[in-house]
């Protein structure tokens, strides 16, 4: 029985804290945690690649400011996600120590923080780069916070498939910041991350099935079982292989990139084929999937620095002309 039901009077301080009106317990590190810095680092890296491999030119200072806006926008989406998901975060062991379920940040603080940063990042990106990039960033934040977090995550096992689009937009935003448009190459960068997301997250979900079940999140392993999840992981890994090589096939990258992407994709497929349950193999696939994405995007960057975006065939023509 609670104190209130016994008719006991609470001190003003305790009453205010219970109503979320008391003095804040949040530290600066809690607000940084709300921004999901690890996710943010992947967003910044893929956006940087999109920005640098794009044919347009953006002054380095404006490019750095655009990247900062994309990072803050991603952080805003993370904060809004934690605001809405605080109830399920509290029952999952992986997320129970996040600032809101741990009681250090109130939901209102997280919501205000998220909305302020979202609005600020979109406005500044529009002024620094262009309004196409700003519009894409606004759509990405909306897609992650509303379409994925509020709608899809709790209603369908395809949540991370469709929601994965939010994580796939950053290189396209970087590209749009540099060029003011959306090129075919940036669509392939989007597709690489979009198709990479299901095997990456389902590998993690296989290891955390109990957590998701307790929280009532209909992840694929919970709804369809381990076998069906593994089957779908393999299908996505199979489709991802040629899409990963595609930048070379369309002439946006050299053969060095193409061969690296083919080998990395084949290895991802091998890791996917080894998975039998939510054990060590699934963890290995999860770990390798992060390395796979890093290698592909890092190679695009190296490739661009070495060959300045020229395809292998165009280098062949230059050499032949000599």
């Amino acid at each position: 029985m609670s104190l209130l039901s016994q008719g006991a009077e609470l001190s003003p301080q305790i009453a205010a804290e219970q109503a979320g009106l008391g003095p804040s317990l949040a530290g600066v590190d809690d607000f940084i945690a709300l921004m999901k810095p690890r996710v943010m680092s992947l967003v910044v890296f893929t956006a940087l690649v999109g920005l640098l491999v794009a044919p347009g030119h953006l002054h380095p200072v404006l490019g750095a400011a655009a990247l900062l806006c994309i990072a803050v926008g991603a952080g805003a989406a993370g904060a809004l996600n934690m605001w809405y998901d605080a109830d399920i975060d509290a029952v999952m062991s992986r997320t129970a120590r996040r600032p809101i379920p741990a009681g250090r940040v109130t939901p209102g603080e997280a919501l205000g923080f998220g909305i302020t940063m979202a609005a600020g990042s979109v406005l500044v990106l529009g002024l620094v780069a262009n309004w196409i990039a700003a519009g894409l960033l606004a759509f990405t934040i909306f897609f992650y916070a509303v379409i994925y977090t509020i709608w899809l995550k709790r209603s369908t096992p395809q949540n991370i498939v469709i929601g994965g689009a939010a994580g796939a937009f950053p290189p396209m935003i970087g590209w749009a910041a540099a060029t003011g448009g959306i090129g075919l190459e940036s669509i392939f960068l989007f597709l690489i991350i979009f198709l990479w997301t299901p095997p990456h997250f389902w590998a993690l979900a296989l290891c955390r099935t109990g957590d998701y079940e307790r929280a009532g999140v209909p992840m694929l392993p919970v709804v369809a079982g381990t076998r069906e999840t593994i089957r779908q992981i393999r299908i996505y890994a199979l489709v991802l292989l040629p899409v990963g090589v595609a930048p070379w096939l369309i002439g946006a990258a050299s053969a060095v990139y193409g061969i690296t992407a083919a080998l990395a994709g084949a290895l991802l497929l091998a890791f996917a084929w080894r998975v039998r349950s939510g054990g060590r193999e699934a963890k290995a696939l999860f770990g390798y999937s992060i390395l796979y994405l890093f290698v592909l995007f890092a190679m695009l960057l190296v490739d661009h620095a070495l060959f300045n975006g020229m395809s292998f065939s165009s280098w062949g023509q230059i050499l032949a002309a000599r």
């Binding site: 301080q13 205010a16 008391g22 804040s24 949040a26 600066v28």
Partner: peptide, 16 residues
């Protein structure tokens, strides 16, 4: 009957 901050709360407010 006002709210009295603890030292920890004051430290965190200063950091914010």
């Amino acid at each position: 009957g006002g709210i009295v901050l603890t030292e920890e709360q004051k430290r965190r407010r200063r950091a914010r």
